[in-house]
Design a protein around this nucleic acid. Sequence first.
RNA 1: GCCCCCAUCGUCUAGCGGCCUAGGACGCCGGGUUCUCAUCCCGGUAACAGGGGUUCGAGUCCCCUUGGGGGUACCA
Length: 540
Amino acid sequence: MIVTRFAPSPTGYLHVGGARTALFNWLYARRAGGKFILRIEDTDLKRNTPTAMQQVIDDLRWLGIDWDEGPEVGGPNGPYLQSQRRDIYDRYIRQLLDEGKAYYCFETTEELGALREEAAGGKQGFAYQRPEVFATHDEAEQARAEGRPVTVRLKVQQEEVTVVNDVVRGEVCFGPGEVGDFIILKSDGFPTYHFAVVVDDELMGVTHVIRGQEHLMNTPAHQALQKALGFRIPVYAHMSVTVSETGGKLSKRERPKALRTAIGASEEIDVQQLAAAGGIDIEMFNAFVMGKLTPDMPAIDAMAEYLGVHLPEINVVDFFRSGYLPETMVNFLALLGWNPGDDREVMTREEVVAAFDISRMAKSNSLFDRKKLLSFNTEHIRIIGHEKLSVHLRRYLEVVGSPVAAADDEMLMRLVRINEGARTLADIDAKCRFLFVANNAVGYDPKAVQKILLKADGLAVLKEVRERLAALETLTPESIETVLRSLAEEKQIGLGKVAQPLRVAICGTTVSPPIFDSVELLGLDNTLDRIDIALKRFAE
RNA sequence: GCCCCCAUCGUCUAGCGGCCUAGGACGCCGGGUUCUCAUCCCGGUAACAGGGGUUCGAGUCCCCUUGGGGGUACCA
């Protein structure tokens, strides 16, 4: 049976790069009828954020990536948090020590840093000098008792060439001495990543490791460990990296960076207010602007919202908040470094699962193209079906706190129907908000008012529109259309000349769903009321 | 510095020695539909990084150069 896993370290929100790794593993397992495991790699206390695991879990669930074993679902190979597996690691560490395949070390971080510095000028990279005689368990205990750092290193064969057999890259060779004796147990008693992955992948029966290219260089070390422990070597597939428009790999730092740039570019901003909007004090704000530190995500988001700037989406939640569908993300992410071998691009989740195979993974890095993503989203909004779309929309509206969330199910379906062609859920939200504000609270866009109502005879037309609508007996999109069209015809003007003043009067902007539906949904009383308000307000 | 990986339109890619006059998609440009925005429809622009080989024949195989990316931790 094929077993894959996704093993994130809980450092914060799941970002697209991680999501793509998770997706590839999930797709492969699902396609092959195998098993997909979620494992949390929390062996670094310093990096762990308390809420991060939940965030990662939520993001995966949103994407529709489910796991057969892991947190919240359990399984026969648990626990699935590495921090809870220390006794297991200790056993294997002890085994290696007893067999003379690993040894204790006592250097401090500073000492190691100095050695590395020294080696920096040399031709070969830094390699740890293996001691002549090895410390005993007792000596290690003693050192620990004295408060000295104790680590364990693996003895790595220095003579042989290591060959990594990679599904996407073929055979990759590493010369003798490329891998030094590396640390497998840290002085805080936790295993290093290298040790924990190897042990867990073996114990959990992982057959295929699909991971980022950044791990290719780690693989010889992992294989050395597998050999020392007598483990099997799983199939490796190292994925190409996703790079961002700005070059380099897609990183979480891009959002704060974009915000910093925006702050720098905008003139006349009230820094006090901006800092307050982000919930940070002015010193912190200044430090941020100068690039000295980075506030947390919510602060960044809040300031961006205050400034009205759009930050590049990096985390999975960013895409959710921008109104993308999980179907879009799955489809798009899958196509970054993989393709089905034919001309299909927009595919449903089921189609992607059915077509996926690691043998068609691309070698070269790819750029994350947000324009194409948008077009994919437009297409998925179109093909997903109204029922599913309204479920997504409801959740979206609730989470972003839109007034449109007040719509009942019937209304929501209606909104979905009249918004065909929307590019994101955010588009639908924005276009429909006018329906959920009080008549006297419509925000009029000055430009729209100027251009549509005040220019030409916008107000005069609006007055006539009012009269015609008021005389209407039954209010349906069709009846409204008839009225507006006949008015336009009589006046020998385009429908736009009639519709636009009405639109601005009821929405405050030049953009809304189709005008006939908009009026009908708003209701006759509200429509007339808003026209009156506009007429009065912009009369002179 | 050292090690590793990669290289087709602006972008994602198809291509696994002759089917390539290099195909698709996004973008972009032009046109059309339309009550706004968006959608939708039609048309166009645009690429094998450079240089050597191998071969009857190279986008496809090999080497070098250049360019890009990754790694070089008691992070994962």
